[in-house]
Deep mutational scan, measured.
Amino acid sequence: MDETGKELVLALYDYQEKSPREVTMKKGDILTLLNSTNKDSWKVEVKITVNGKTYERQGFVPAAYVKKL
């Protein structure tokens, strides 16, 4: 869990989004878990840094590609 009590997951593999509802992640990324009720895909939040500014983006990733921490 992070400092706000949200559950975290670790990306086990790289994943490139295939639709606007998904998010891209790299192996080793730590993501905030938002919903894990679907056995196939979990909703997560990723933090992306562009030019020194951090943005948050929500979307789905394959459940088999992440592990709860």
Rank of each mutant, 00 (worst) to 15 (best):
S36A: 11
L34M: 06
T24M: 03
E17N: 06
T54H: 07
K27R: 10
R57M: 08
K39C: 12
Y15Q: 01
P62H: 04
D2I: 14
G52Y: 03
Y65P: 02
E7R: 10
A11N: 02
T24F: 04
K43D: 02
E17P: 15
G59A: 03
D14S: 06
Y15A: 00
E22H: 04
V61Q: 00
D29N: 05
S36H: 07
K26P: 02
K47F: 09
K43Y: 15
M1A: 13
L8G: 03
E22V: 03
R21A: 13
E45W: 06
L69R: 01
K27F: 04
K18P: 03
L33N: 00
N51W: 06
G52K: 02
K67Q: 12
L31N: 00
T54N: 08
T54S: 10
K6H: 12
Q16P: 04
A11Q: 02
E22R: 03
E17S: 15
N51S: 08
S19C: 11
L10N: 02
K39P: 15
R21T: 14
E22Y: 06
E3Q: 13
S19W: 08
T49F: 10
L69Y: 07
K43W: 15
K18E: 09
D2F: 13
K26R: 11
Q58L: 04
T49Q: 10
A64G: 09
N51C: 12
K26T: 07
K43M: 15
L31W: 02
M25W: 04
S19P: 04
V23M: 07
R21E: 15
G5L: 12
Y55E: 10
E7D: 10
D29Y: 05
Y55I: 13
P20H: 09
L34P: 00
K53F: 13
V50M: 10
K43P: 01
A11E: 02
V44Q: 00
F60V: 04
I48P: 00
V44C: 05
K6V: 13
T49V: 13
L10I: 15
V44F: 03
W42S: 01
D14C: 08
V23Q: 02
P62K: 05
K47I: 12
D40T: 10
V66T: 02
L10K: 06
Y65E: 02
T49S: 11
K26S: 08
N51L: 08
K68Q: 07
M25P: 02
T24V: 02
Q16S: 11
Q58V: 13
E17V: 05
P62W: 07
K53P: 01
F60Q: 03
L8D: 01
V46R: 08
Y65L: 13
D2W: 14
T49Y: 10
L31S: 02
E22D: 07
K6T: 11
K18H: 07
D29S: 05
M1L: 13
Y65V: 07
E45H: 07
T24R: 05
A11P: 01
M25E: 01
K43G: 03
N51H: 09
D40C: 14
K26M: 08
R57Q: 06
V44A: 00
V66R: 00
Y55P: 00
N38L: 09
I48V: 12
T4G: 14
G52V: 02
A11R: 02
K27E: 05
K18D: 05
K47V: 12
I48F: 11
V66D: 02
T24K: 03
I48L: 09
A63G: 03
G5F: 13
Q58A: 09
D29P: 00
K43T: 06
K68V: 12
G52A: 04
R21Q: 14
L12W: 03
R57K: 12
K6Y: 12
T54K: 08
G59T: 02
M25D: 00
T4R: 12
N51I: 04
R57F: 07
T37L: 09
E7W: 11
E22K: 03
G5N: 12
T32N: 07
M1W: 13
L31G: 03
I30C: 07
I48Q: 07
D40S: 11
R57Y: 07
S36G: 10
Q58P: 02
L12V: 06
N35I: 06
F60E: 04
Q58S: 11
Y65T: 08
R21P: 04
K27G: 04
T32V: 15
A64R: 12
S41W: 15
E45A: 15
K53G: 07
L31R: 01
G5M: 11
S41D: 07
T32M: 10
M25S: 01
T32Y: 10
T4S: 13
A11T: 04
K68Y: 09
V44S: 00
W42K: 00
I30S: 00
S19M: 06
G28Y: 03
Q58Y: 06
M1N: 12
Q16D: 13
G28M: 02
E56V: 15
G59Y: 05
L34C: 07
T4I: 13
L12S: 01
K68I: 12
D14V: 04
P62T: 05
V50Y: 09
G59R: 00
S19H: 11
A63Q: 03
W42H: 00
P62M: 04
V66H: 03
N35A: 08
L10W: 06
M25G: 02
P20S: 11
M1R: 12
G52F: 03
L31H: 01
D14L: 05
G59H: 03
K43Q: 12
L34R: 01
L34E: 00
S41F: 15
L33D: 01
A64N: 11
K67N: 05
L8M: 10
M1P: 13
N38V: 05
T54D: 08
T37W: 07
V66K: 02
K39S: 10
D40M: 10
A64F: 08
V50S: 09
L69G: 01
V9P: 01
N35R: 05
T32D: 02
E45F: 06
V66A: 02
L8Q: 09
W42T: 00
K26C: 12
K47A: 08
L31A: 07
